[in-house]
Design a protein around this nucleic acid. Structure first.
Lengths: 338, 338
DNA sequence: ACCTCGCTTGGGAACGTTCCCATTCTCTGC
DNA sequence: GCAGAGAATGGGAACGTTCCCAAGCGAGGT
């Protein structure tokens, strides 16, 4: 039972006493069908428990009603990095509403990336969402050449040509800097992400702008680069303390790195926030669970997810349409670490 | 450019000077092809940059090389619940290695679930992975009736008939109980998950067993049920403290609930671990980030993910094979909260 | 020298849809 | 009463692959 031959559009047509085409028209909501024919078809569909075969449909329509969401797993582990989970959630919300399937692709290394482009070339998806792209990432270019609609979460540079949604990283960094200054701090360090990513550069620039506004002279010893991991944040903090032992605040470009920094601060006997104030970025649960709870720049990650999904669906529906760039606001959430 | 007509198997055949079938044979690795024909075909494929159309292939083979991973989003938000991220990671690892696509389905409510069964009926996937099933969940039965290979992470009951992988929840609960007893605690409470889930019942039973071993009389006032959320853990803790103010330890069936419990304990002025020892379950980053850091029962979540993926691929390859049940060991990780 | 067997090969059919087009039927207007 | 328009309908072809089967072609055995 259960596994017997499933009905096709022909079976339905026979049962309803009409032709294949009429059934197809009913399924696809064409108006050029008489009421009685439509009723007969709908009855037959219900009786036979018929569901159209989406693969056969895809062969002729050249549409799969599914999009890929590509997440680079190498650099920031899904799970320890709540950012990705939130993006997935936002994307999924929009896709489910439009009955589009979500193909999740975790890319760990180069080999897997090549597989990905194959899979995309196999026309298994109508479009691609890319998260966390580096400036020199070849993937967006490849996809563009394949003529496949592509939308980014984040951007490769401020002049990004592909459609994308990102948060106001410059503004967020500036807000973090201003906040620390307003708390009376003057030796304010920063831990940035990889500098080949626009997120990192923008947040760094925001921090610089805030310091500039307050006429605090730039000091290279107060800048350390890490890789968005806790371990990296720890090491960066250590290096900062060596080069600038008198620092009294640090702005990290992610909560995870800020958590690593706080670990190192405690290890070296510096109190947070009394000796060193800390501000993170993301406002994930890590900020809430941290001890002391962490001040952090909130970015609307789930909304980024839903936005890129919406942009992609638009681009699939109308490939000729103009590319769109969306920037979402950030917001400082003040807690005990600053 | 880029979007011009993509080559088909016919184009390749013409270019290589052979028939369609020979090209197909080369692609699918048949040995019944002469070396020179194979060489010609491979050359043509390379020159034309040909990639087989997987949709057309799927139409005749009735295989899509993609499986669905279904995650109920309602009860435990992806992201705040690291369990799901880890499962996804494990699943993805195995699938990528076998070039199988992963369709991620977040199910929020009944309506979305119905869509899911439709989508499954449309034959878009070769099999389904279900996470976090409740005892009376209709989905496994529906899928079984559709004749679609189905594998569960976790089980509906100890006599689960479908293939599944789960961790040794009974053993884990027992270990947690024994540990607290070994710390000299005697009034040991527990916060369980929903009792219509086997995970919850098994962990509870393990806790009971441990208490029984130590000849501690059961006491209903020491049991509270929550829903695997932080909020729920908080409320459960409050209720426990009301009913049994003399409790000196609590075992929560998840880290998230344990975190909620710790919050409530602190609010009521009980020190952890001096007044009340706390043990969680999962050993997620929440346990590490908690303050004090949390003792927790580690379960190999990523391995559960890779196991169910492997089981599903096996079942797809050989639908007649016997169902398999895998139980993975847990391990107590002792930290400062106990 | 002929038959047979095994290795290669390629054409036809099928998978289940949608789209194009021709056909039938009905109704309107003169 | 008849031409023409427009609505409704259904058959054929196509989408790009795989599978079935028939056929070509040497070689080896009798």
């Amino acid at each position: 039972m259960g596994a017997q031959q499933r009905p096709t559009i022909k079976t339905v047509a026979a049962r309803a006493g009409v032709g294949r085409t009429t059934v197809s028209r009913v399924i696809n909501g064409s108006t050029l069908v008489s009421d009685e024919a439509r009723a007969a078809v709908l009855a037959a569909i219900a009786e036979l428990n018929y569901v159209p075969n989406s693969v056969a449909r895809g062969l002729v329509t050249r549409r799969t009603n599914s999009v890929a969401l590509v997440i680079p797993e190498s650099e920031s582990r899904l799970g320890s990095e709540p950012y990705f989970s939130a993006v997935i959630r936002g994307v999924s919300t929009v896709l489910t509403a439009t009955r589009t399937q979500l193909q999740l692709v975790l890319v760990r290394d180069r080999g897997e990336r090549d597989q990905l482009t194959d899979s995309v070339a196999e026309r298994r998806v109508d479009g691609v969402l890319l998260v966390s792209v580096h400036e020199d990432d070849p993937l967006p270019g490849i996809l563009e050449n394949l003529g496949l609609p592509t939308v980014l979460a984040g951007r490769r540079s401020p002049s990004e040509s592909l459609s994308h949604a990102c948060s106001d990283n410059l503004g967020g960094g500036k807000e973090a800097g201003r906040h620390l200054i307003s708390r009376g701090r003057r030796r304010i360090a920063t831990i940035t992400g990889p500098l080949d990513m626009d997120v990192s550069r923008s947040r760094l620039q925001g921090w610089r702008d805030a310091l500039g506004e307050a006429d605090i002279a730039p000091d290279g010893r107060l800048i350390a680069t890490a890789d968005f991991t806790e371990e990296g944040g720890m090491l960066a903090m250590r290096s900062l303390l060596e080069r600038a032992p008198d620092l009294d605040a640090v702005f990290a470009a992610s909560d995870v790195m800020a958590a690593g920094a706080m670990l190192e601060l405690r290890r070296q006997g510096r109190r947070v926030p009394e000796d060193v104030a800390v501000v993170g970025f993301d406002d994930s649960y890590i900020a809430r669970y941290a001890h002391p709870s962490m001040t952090s720049v909130r970015q609307p990650v789930e909304e980024i997810g839903s936005t890129i999904a919406r942009l992609l669906l638009g681009e699939i529906a109308d490939p000729g349409a103009a590319r769109q760039h969306v920037m979402l606001p950030t917001e400082l959430v003040v807690r005990d670490s600053s």
